[in-house]
Write a protein that binds this DNA or RNA. Structure first.
Lengths: 192, 192
DNA sequence: CTAAAATATGGTCAAATGACCACATTTTCG
DNA sequence: CGAAAATGTGGTCATTTGACCATATTTTAG
């Protein structure tokens, strides 16, 4: 169950086998069915989550009830609502499984202890956070500046594997455009 | 010159007088004229900057030459291109003064030493980074989901002081809408 | 203090977008 | 395996947006 995580650690970090074993020993394995929630708005995010296999989406609901997707999280990546997790405040967002998903989770107390006890993990976590801010800024810039067609092309280029795993209405919700506009773009690209 | 920074530190952190003195002693005071650049795309960001007084904008240029503003930085706030600064890579963005601005700057080597020597500064810096990710996520959500009118209302509510200090074309560039749309919105709100 | 530059707004028009509906096809679920 | 749900696309139409231009006013710079 956790061998995927160990492979991930070996390829992405320089943690030792002992350190990885220590991290795994406090992990709580879990799975979510399709459409099952990991976090619902109004709840406090109490776990740091690693996705062993599957696909999650983090989304918010606008005042008119429409769903807008902030990010997708797929195999071998981490997810959480950092604000809710760190401040222990009610989340404004939801995290839900798009397909059956297997995860490892750590409580905040356990993970904080790991960060204290394993400096290399602390460093790696900070690297993830800073990397997240860089990609977040690029995402904001693209969202502000790109036409709907450029947004879709950027998505396809950046996440070619996700294209086949996601319904178009979710891609549209991620790009901030309507399903109608997205199918128009696809149509004009197919007939070019 | 630096008393503003000391007041800021006292009101926003629990750093001691000695620690603040230590930080100030390595600060490089500077000023920028209106329209002067702090950072230009293609350059490496070599300083962490605190704004004593004034107003900066961080922006990128889209492929068609249009400017899109990611953020404004006003008195008593920090700014830098974190990705360029940490990775020592060429920045994709620009930071320019909108009005005459006075700053304090630290080189990366000096600031890293401060972070090592003053744990409270390290903690505070991490708090700033995480707070930046929360506001960034909220900004992305608003940019994806809000109508042009909602974006403007949110801007006015969040930054009432900036409204008078910025030309409308810069507010439009920050909101990702055209100047024309922005003046339509203002017109309809004035005549309500 | 004045000329030049910048800004804010209105008018006009074309293009783009999104809502709604219908239908065929694919996927899901029990 | 079959019914139900979900998906993807096309058609239509109203609304919104943005580009361009003109004008008046305000701000800037020397």
């Amino acid at each position: 169950m956790t061998s995927g995580f160990e492979i991930y650690c070996h390829s992405h970090t320089n943690l030792s086998d002992e350190e990885i074993e220590r991290i795994v020993s406090t992990a709580i394995p879990g799975s979510l069915q399709r459409n099952e929630s990991l976090l619902q708005q109004g709840q406090v995010c109490r776990h740091k989550t690693f996705i062993l296999k599957g696909l999650l989406r983090t989304y918010g609901i606008a005042e008119d009830g429409s769903e807008y997707i902030l990010q997708f999280s797929t195999d071998n990546s981490w997810t959480l609502d950092a604000e809710s997790y760190h401040l222990q405040s009610a989340s404004q967002f939801n995290i839900t499984a798009i397909e059956r998903t297997e995860v490892l989770q750590w409580t905040r107390a356990d993970f904080d202890r790991l960060l204290t006890d394993i400096p290399a993990l602390n460093i790696y976590s900070l690297q993830l956070i800073t990397r997240t801010t860089y990609t977040g800024r690029q995402r904001l810039f693209t969202t502000l500046s790109a036409s709907p067609e450029e947004k879709y092309e950027d998505f396809v280029r950046t996440y070619p594997d996700l294209l086949a795993r996601l319904p178009l209405h979710m891609i549209a919700a991620y790009l901030g455009i309507s399903l109608k506009t997205l199918t128009r773009i696809r149509h004009s690209q197919l007939h070019r």
